[in-house]
C-alpha cells in the first residue's frame, strides 16, 4: 500500500506536539514550536493551500518564535515538574471522541463533490478569471469577494497591537517601571555579543536588502501568484526584526522610529477602509472597487470594471501590508524593549 506523504508529515507533527508538551526546557520547546509551524507549512502546500503555507512559514516559524524567545528572556526558562492530572486527560479524550463522532458524516478527504466545493466556489474561480482577469483566486476572494472579512481581520490585528502597547507600554519612556536588573544586562550583553560576531553581522547586512526586496515582490505579485499584503507585511517586518536582533534595538529604532511605525499601523487600516469610503462617494457600494475604474462621462465597460478592481486590490493589499508590517515590528519593539534597561 502506498503511504501518502501527508501521513508521514502528520506523524512527525504529532510526535513534535507530544515532545513540545513533555519538554521542561521552554527554550527548546519554543524552537520546536517554530519547526512545528514550518512542517505544517509543508503540509499546507501538499493540500494546495500555497498562500496559507506561505503565511504559516513566515508567521509561525519566524515571528512567533521571536516573540516566544523575547518572552523567555524575561521569564524563567524551565517549567516546573508536576504530576500528571487525570481530569484534563479525561476532558480531552471526551472532546476528541465527540469531534471524531462529528466528522463521521463528513465527505471523504479530497472528495471533489463535497458540499464545500459548491456553486459559489465555482463562481469565485470563474469571477477571478473573467471579471478580475488575475491568476490568483485567493487574492480575488481575499480582497473583494470577502473584503469585509479581510477589513475586519486587519482591524483585529490593529486592535491586538493596541492591546500589546497598552499592556507593555514603552519601557524607555517609563524608567523604573519594571525591574531591569534581572534581564537587562544579560539582554544587552547578548546584543553586544551578536553585534561582535562578524559572520552574523556580514550575513545579516547582505540578507536584509534581499528580504525587503522579496517582501515588495510578494506584495505586488500577490495578484499573480502566492503572496499579498499579509505575507509581504510579515516578510518586511522580519527584515527589520533581523536588523534589530543583530544590531540592537536602539539602531533598529533609529532606522524605523516607533512613532512612524505606530502611525503606519493605523494608516494601513485607514487606507483599506478609506478605499471603501471612496467607493461609496463615487456612487458604488462599500469596497466595490469597480467604481475606481470609472471614467467621467463614459459608460462603464467591462474593461473599466476590471481596471477598477485591480486598483482596489492594489490599494487594500497595500493597506494590509502596511498594517501587518508595522504591527509586527511594533510588537517586536515592545517585547525586546521590555528586556532592556
Amino acid at each position: 500500500m502506498q503511504i501518502p506523504i501527508e501521513a508521514i508529515l502528520f506523524a512527525l507533527l504529532i510526535a513534535m506536539a507530544i515532545v513540545i508538551g513533555r519538554m521542561r526546557d521552554l527554550f527548546a520547546a519554543a524552537m520546536l514550536t517554530g519547526m512545528f509551524s514550518l512542517m505544517s507549512a509543508g503540509l499546507f502546500t501538499l493540500m494546495d493551500a500555497v498562500d496559507v503555507a506561505f503565511t504559516e512559514a513566515a508567521v509561525g516559524a519566524g515571528v512567533s518564535t521571536v516573540l516566544l524567545l523575547g518572552t523567555l528572556s524575561v521569564t524563567r526558562q524551565q517549567e516546573r515538574m508536576r504530576p500528571t492530572r487525570p481530569l484534563p486527560l479525561m476532558v480531552v479524550l471526551f472532546t476528541g471522541a465527540a469531534l471524531l463522532w462529528g466528522t463521521l458524516d463528513m465527505p471523504a478527504y479530497g472528495d471533489p463533490n463535497a458540499f464545500a466545493h459548491n456553486d459559489i466556489t465555482r463562481a469565485f474561480i470563474q469571477g477571478t478569471a473573467e471579471t478580475f482577469e488575475i491568476p490568483n483566486a485567493v487574492t480575488a476572494v481575499l480582497g473583494s469577494y470577502r473584503g469585509y472579512d479581510t477589513l475586519g481581520e486587519t482591524t483585529v490585528i490593529f486592535a491586538a497591537i493596541v492591546g500589546v502597547m497598552a499592556a507593555l507600554g514603552r519601557s524607555h519612556t517609563q524608567p523604573g517601571h519594571h525591574d531591569p536588573v534581572e534581564a537587562g544586562p544579560d539582554a544587552a550583553r547578548s546584543h553586544m555579543r551578536m553585534r561582535d560576531k562578524a559572520i552574523l553581522r556580514v550575513i545579516a547586512k547582505a540578507f536584509i536588502p534581499f528580504i525587503l526586496l522579496f517582501g515588495l515582490y510578494v506584495q505586488f505579485h500577490g495578484d499573480f501568484g502566492p503572496g499579498g499584503g499579509f505575507q509581504a507585511g510579515v516578510i518586511v517586518a522580519a527584515g527589520f526584526v533581523l536588523y534589530g536582533l543583530i544590531f540592537g534595538l536602539d539602531n533598529a529604532e533609529r532606522v524605523a522610529p516607533p512613532r512612524i511605525v505606530e502611525i503606519g499601523a493605523a494608516l494601513g487600516v485607514l487606507l483599506f477602509a478609506g478605499t471603501g469610503i471612496v467607493n461609496m462617494l463615487q456612487g458604488g457600494m462599500f469596497l466595490d472597487y469597480s467604481t475606481l475604474g470609472a471614467h467621467a462621462g463614459e459608460p462603464m465597460t467591462k474593461e473599466h470594471i476590471t481596471h477598477g478592481l485591480h486598483r482596489g486590490l492594489l490599494l487594500i493589499e497595500g493597506g494590509v501590508g502596511i498594517t501587518v508590517a508595522c504591527s509586527i515590528l511594533m510588537i517586536f519593539y515592545q517585547f525586546s524593549g521590555r528586556g532592556r534597561h
Partner: peptide, 17 residues
Amino acid sequence: NPLPHVLMLTAIVVGIA
C-alpha cells in the same frame, strides 16, 4: 477550494497578533 485558504491565511495573522 480557495475560500478556506483565504479565511485561514487571515486567521494565521490574527493568531500571531
